[in-house]
Amino acid sequence: MFDITQLLDEIKASPYEEIVVTAPHTGVVTFTDVREGARVIGPSGTWKEKKGTLLATIERERNQKPIHAVEKGEVKEVLRHLEGAFVEAGTPLVRLRHFLSKDEVLAIILKKALHLFVAPERAKYYFAPDVDKKVKASGASSVSLHEGMDLFIMSRMKREASLAYSGPSGVIYAVYFQHNENVDAGQPLIGVCPPDQLSLIEDVVARVQTEWEERE
């Protein structure tokens, strides 16, 4: 079993992450008056329905698309020389320094604590229809897994194959893949918690909740 104290100390030593906000598509960029050193906020609300700080807009085919901060943090750099220019998709626009939140720290630690079922190939993944129904109705944690059950549909180049679960029995504690997004080979798809470790995992959650101080 891993050492949670050590892990927390490691994260505390470098609690930052650099986030690069890029152009989602081509278009002409206009920055807002956000400056280097300014504090920005990320999406908030129960369903993250409130957008983060507006950083720039990008206009294409007469449509303006707002570009918001994806996480809270401090603005490190605004690439102002792109003001008014037509940029390619993926062009970096703003760099943010983001202080890890409780949930993010928890996610990092859980990735070490849970049994991870990883993607065998770079592909898009979907829950198998029966599992999908359950997930939609009562959440991923309602799905109990056992060796050999049909869990995923793996889709590559529009060809689909079913993928069976292998690993310890347990419930799905964390879901790491997004609908219609590619997952690289070796990246985790889900985190599974065996029933006998449930209390341990809950301890971990509690410790992070109490020990991690969220900074602005």
Partner: peptide, 8 residues
């Protein structure tokens, strides 16, 4: 030019 998708 780099674009986000060929389908867009």
């Amino acid at each position: 030019c780099r674009v986000s998708s060929y389908h867009d």
